[in-house]
Structure formats: structure tokens, C-alpha cells
Write a protein that binds this DNA or RNA. Structure first.
Lengths: 208, 208
DNA sequence: ACACTTTTGAACCGGACGGTTCATTTATCG
DNA sequence: CGATAAATGAACCGTCCGGTTCAAAAGTGT
């Protein structure tokens, strides 16, 4: 058990998030977090003065860790030549993987559960994470629409509905995150989502 | 302040749910619930022996209260003559109202937050509530398909996607339930959902 | 080797909470 | 009215938790 000034802070934040995710905010005690981090209790209060700020910082760190993953899922949507369906299915599958990632799920669950006690976190993370993802997807879809590969004049709505078709069905299928959904089912959900999305947004449809 | 044997039990369960919804399970103390219910603390332990069973029973009661509302939203889908769009929009709007109802939101939030500590509740309520709603909607859609008013051979998938198109966009717009969404926005979401749903499921489309 | 900072363990404090006990009061019912 | 059952308030117990204190130990820079 080494002592001294290693990156205790990061270990603390990581252990804190892990414990909060496992037990919830109110049921987690700082003793347990200290044990999980392999650190003495006063060390926690030295680095972060408070259980509340400990929670906030742990959440912010976890959000920062997970936000890149989500955006990365949209990268191969950038250079779709003509097979829109394949590109959307691939991006959809990656988004679903990100959505089912344990850390991502825990983050959403904690954010949802403690939204009343930490309203600032809600704005900060929700804006920084979900909103970024939404906007990035809307940008990609707008590009595809400009190229004539998609038909929409409201890429924001299109992004909203694509994400809904992807993540909506997961709540039920994963039983709110308590069941691990096999990859084949993920692919099937993604395929169905792309199917109906393209019915509405592929060039050559009937609806405005 | 009347004493004696009135329906204390129901008052307790209602106050318990209200408090749990406001503070979360771990942060709620039985003293506060007793005060909220206008009842002495031992009375709670007489009727329900434990904080955990108090939580369980309060959740079950709230679920029972809210499940009927959800199913009722689908009633006018039973006798749609030919204007499928109007019927779906009406049902969608009612579903959104139910989804945004404070008790319904609190129930989902608590279920989601304490899913790890009360796994049985998750199965019980999720099955009894969301699953019922899903099945009922799938039934209605299957009837419409039989009448030739809809085109699908997988009404379960259609129901899943219709619900996703309705409730998915709400998570962002309501900021996880912390913002009250005006009715006009609800109607707009419902209209958009019906638009793309009908693009995929109206008779006379291209996709299989 | 030296002074300086950080970490550690352990003990400690005040408060809150879950749950119980009990004597007293209140309503219900024959 | 009298007996029975339920509700009350208040005190109580053991426990756990957030947060602090402190002296000793371990690491760091020169």
C-alpha cells in the first residue's frame, strides 16, 4: 500500500462514482468510498471538502469520461458516401452500445434520481452531454440532407426522433438497465429504428 | 385533528409516496412521513412493520393508482373509423399527458433510482404498468392493421416505436421531469410522432 | 540529511435515524 | 356505559454517519 502524493484525487472521484452508482447518494457513506479508493477518510475531506461537492465532482468527472464516447459514435456518419442505411445502422449500433455502457447508465440514473437535490448538475451535465450528442447528430443529418441523401428541413427533429427510436425501446428491453441486452438484440433494435426512420426521412417519400 | 380508526393506512401510503418522491428513499425519514400523513410514528410501524415494506407498499399503491390512467389514454383508439391520424394524435396526446403527470414521473424516477435495492418492485411494477400499456397499444394497432387502416405485421414493434417517438423526446424537453412542458409543446411532439409513425406504418408506403 | 507537505489511522463529536416501549387518550361496538 | 382495540406523544436505545482533530508516519524537494 503506497503512500504519498500519487493521483489520490482521481482515485477518490472514481471510487466515489462507483459507490454512488452502486448504492445511491443517500445510502453511500464516505467511509465506504474511502475504503473503495484505498484512502483514508480525512484525505477525502482534504481534497474535496464535502460529501455534496464530492458527489458533484465525481459526477462531473464521470460525465467528462463518457461524453467523448457518445460523440465518437457519430464519427463515421461524417463521410457517408451513398449507403445512408448502412451508415445510420452503424452509428445507431454504436450509440446503443454507448447508451448501454454501465458508466453511462449509472450517470443517467444518478442524475435522474438526484435531480431535485442537485439541479445545477442536471443543467451542467445534461446540457454538456445529451445536448452535445443531439446537436452533433443534427449536424450530421443536416449534411446528409444537403447532399440529397436525406429529406428533411428540420434536422433537429430528425435527430430527436432517431435518438428516440434508438433509446426508447431500450428502457423496456433492458428493464431500466438491470438486464444486459445481448448484442444481437441491440442490432435488431438499431435496424428497426433505421427502418422506420428512413421510411420517414428517405428521399422519395410522400409526407412533408 | 381527528383520531381513531379512519383510513390511516391509505393516508400513510400516500404521504409516504409523496415524501419518497420528494426526498428519495434514503433521505426520507419515517418521522417526516408520519408528520406528512398527520399520524404518529408508531402507527406507521403498526400498519407496516418496516421502512422497506412501507416503501414497497407505497410504490405499489401509487402504481395501481396510475396504471388505469395510462390505459384509459388508449380507449378512444378502440373505435377509430377511418381517420387514423386524428385517433393516433389524440391517443398520443393523452399518453403524453399521462407520461408528464407528476405521480407517474415520480414513480418512474423512484423505480429507476432504487432498482438495485428493490429488484422485485422493478419486475412487479414495470411488468404491471409499462408492459400492460405496451400490450394494450399493440392490441389496438393490430386491430387497425386488420381493418386495413395500418400496415404492419408486427404490432409489438409498432407499439414500441410509437411509444418511443412519443416519450423519447420528452426526456430532453422536460429536463428529466424538472421542467413543466406546456401543452402546446406536448401537442407538437405528439403530432411529429404521428407524422413519422404514419410515414412508416400507413398503408401505401414502400418499405416492408 | 533536512525541512515541509501530505497521508494515515484512530478516536471523537453532535446529530439524525430506524425501531421500540409505555402509559394515556380516543374511538368503536355491544 | 363499559370493554376492547387502536392511536398518540414522548421518551428511549443502539447505531451509523458526516465531519473534525491530532499525533505519528511517509513521501518530496533541496
Amino acid at each position: 500500500m503506497p503512500r504519498g502524493r500519487v493521483d489520490k484525487r482521481q482515485a477518490i472521484l472514481q471510487a466515489a462514482f462507483k459507490t454512488f452508482a452502486r448504492e445511491g447518494y443517500g445510502q453511500s457513506c464516505v467511509r465506504e468510498i474511502a475504503a473503495e479508493a484505498g484512502v483514508a477518510k480525512p484525505t477525502i475531506y482534504n481534497h474535496l471538502g464535502d460529501k455534496e461537492t464530492l458527489f458533484r465532482e465525481a459526477m462531473r468527472a464521470a460525465a467528462g469520461r463518457t461524453v467523448g464516447q457518445g460523440l465518437a459514435a457519430l464519427d463515421q456518419l461524417r463521410d457517408v458516401q451513398n449507403d445512408v442505411r448502412a451508415g445510420l445502422e452503424d452509428a445507431g449500433h454504436r450509440l446503443l452500445l454507448h447508451h448501454c455502457d454501465e458508466e453511462s447508465q449509472a450517470l443517467r440514473r444518478l442524475l435522474h434520481a438526484e435531480a431535485a437535490r442537485f439541479p445545477e448538475l442536471l443543467e451542467l451535465i445534461q446540457q454538456e452531454s445529451a445536448r452535445h450528442l443531439h446537436d452533433a447528430l443534427a449536424d450530421r443529418l443536416a449534411r446528409l440532407a444537403l447532399s440529397g441523401l436525406l429529406r428533411t428541413n428540420d434536422p433537429d427533429l430528425a435527430a430527436e426522433q432517431f435518438l428516440a427510436l434508438l433509446t426508447g425501446p431500450m428502457e423496456l428491453r433492458s428493464r431500466l438497465g438491470t438486464r444486459k441486452v445481448p448484442d444481437a438484440e441491440l442490432r435488431a433494435v438499431g435496424r428497426s429504428a433505421v427502418d422506420t426512420f428512413l421510411c420517414a426521412y428517405a428521399p422519395g417519400s410522400v409526407d412533408a
